[in-house]
Amino acid sequence: MSLSILPTADDSRTNAIFEELIWALSRPGLLRTMPAGGFTAIAESLLDRECTFHVLGDRVLDGESAGDLERDLAATGARRADLAQADYVFAALRSAQAVDDLSRLRIGTLAYPDEAATVFTPANFGTGQQLRLSGPGIRDSVTITVGGIDASFWQMRAKAIRYPLGFDLYLVDGDDVVGIPRSTKVEVL
């Protein structure tokens, strides 16, 4: 019996994106580069009919590239849900209003802290606010510079997270991704 042991292009892409995501999340603050970029590629590796999503803002989270993120996310089979129920939230956080909206995110329960939201947000690395991260996955501490996120967000995050409850965050800049799980302490410098 011969087996087809080579992955299809889809398999390779989703596997590689997952590998970058788990690297990014297990080493918060470390910049990882995905082979194919963008929110659609991330969604394709993680989302399917078992998940719910919510998009806040949009025109592919700020219109730089044309397309329809909602439609792409729905094409994975995942269902749209209200922000307070959604598993995966794709949100632009450029304004205080957007950050305020996000305060209704699911943070899980003490019995099931995994039933919490995962947030993907566009950001720019290398310019903007300096953040010092510490916690699991980080030796001592690491400093990153992130732009494109409203200053009120980090305060909102600190308030929302009552470890082990809280949400997990990925900052996405084109093909680059930085993971900030709820276990990470973020200090605004």
């Binding site: 788990i22 999340l25 399917d48 995994d114 082990p164 799980p181 709820r182 276990s183």
Partner: peptide, 15 residues
């Protein structure tokens, strides 16, 4: 695999 990916990421987020 997608289900495992989602769960592994949550596992890493809450060590």
């Amino acid at each position: 695999k997608r289900e495992l990916r989602r769960k592994m990421l949550k596992a890493v987020a809450v060590p």
